[in-house]
């Protein structure tokens, strides 16, 4: 059964009891009485499989209203994994972003079966490009733009690398657009599905862009890393794509790894293997079209060299 097979009323009831949502490669058991998240949940995860009885779930999460006097004046929302709440409460109207952030936290803090990078990742065919970069580098925007121009979205924030095979594993969840990039993307990809704008979160204004149907359908199809590209948005800059040494690329990946220390030598070996199989660049850009073209050229060059 898919989430969108249920009416809003049914989803409301199901969420009250708790429902298991398949968000490949994970299963998430979500329990909440906050029905305000249903439209966004349906828009972003409508085509995902659900299960109404409580079976196995990788993450058991819930969204709650704190039971304090404050709820009468300034309602809030809290995120729990099992019985633990990793964050402070947020204003009630940010319930949906909190679900997304909470899920990020669950994956990033516990899924040590993968080497986890704070990086965007997409693929063209079997070849994946990893975009590690700190917030503010324009990584999400670039990732969103690529995902509407023939690149298959794996994730805008969480790169999962299977250390046993060296492959990246798709986690196609909505792209979290922030501030100016919301309007940029609405203009750049008017046909894509955008949700409401959540104003004044701790990351500024945020808006979720749904992955393409193809990206969601192929959620189980992994890819081999082929490029590591460190993007940097610089206003008015001309595009430059500079080859980067492998040690530097390795350092960039390690710096952006969530569980580099936790996994010790394993993560070094995995990342070294990734970098060995990749062409590595740093990219400076200001115009999205140019950047997309540069990615297309890279992909083409790779195909030609393979022939």
């Amino acid at each position: 059964m898919k989430l969108s097979d249920l009416s809003d009323g049914d989803i409301r009831q199901a969420l009250h009891r708790g429902l298991t949502l398949r968000i490949e490669p994970f299963s998430v058991y979500l329990q909440t009485d906050i029905h305000q998240i249903i439209p966004e949940l349906k828009r972003n995860y409508g085509t995902r499989d659900i299960q109404l009885s409580e079976g196995f779930a990788d993450f058991k999460v819930s969204l709650k209203r704190p039971r304090t006097f404050r709820r009468w004046l300034q309602p809030q929302v809290e995120f729990y994994q099992d019985f633990f709440s990793p964050f402070k409460p947020l204003p009630f109207n940010q319930a949906y972003p909190m679900f997304e952030w909470g899920l990020n936290w669950c994956v990033a803090s516990q899924s040590h079966q993968y080497v986890l990078l704070h990086a965007a990742v997409l693929a063209k065919g079997d070849h994946a490009v990893i975009l590690p970069a700190p917030p503010g580098s324009g990584k999400s925007t670039l990732c969103a733009a690529l995902s509407t121009r023939g690149w298959r979205l794996f994730s805008d924030e969480l790169t999962l690398i299977d250390p046993t095979t060296g492959e990246v594993v798709p986690l196609p969840r909505p792209v979290n657009l922030k501030n100016n990039s919301i309007d940029v993307m609405r203009r750049y990809a008017p046909d894509a599905s955008f949700g409401p704008r959540f104003n004044d979160t701790h990351k500024g204004d945020v808006c979720y862009m749904r992955p393409t149907e193809q990206a969601i359908d192929d959620a189980l199809v992994r890819a081999k890393p082929a490029w590591v590209i460190l993007p940097k948005y610089k206003p008015d800059a001309d595009l430059t794509l500079t080859p980067m040494g492998r040690p530097q690329a390795l350092a960039a990946l390690a710096e952006n790894a969530f569980n580099y220390e936790q996994l010790g030598a394993d993560s070094f070996d995995t990342l070294a293997q990734v970098v060995d199989g990749c062409a590595c660049y740093s990219l400076e850009y200001s115009r999205l079209d140019e950047a997309i073209q540069a990615f297309a050229d890279l992909s083409l060059a790779r195909l030609e060299s393979a022939v």
């Binding site: 079966q113 936790q262 030598a265």
Partner: peptide
């Protein structure tokens, strides 16, 4: 996967 994750974490620790 959970068993694998826990074991890797332990080994590294």
């Amino acid at each position: 996967p959970h068993v694998f994750a826990a074991k890797r974490l332990c080994t590294a620790q």
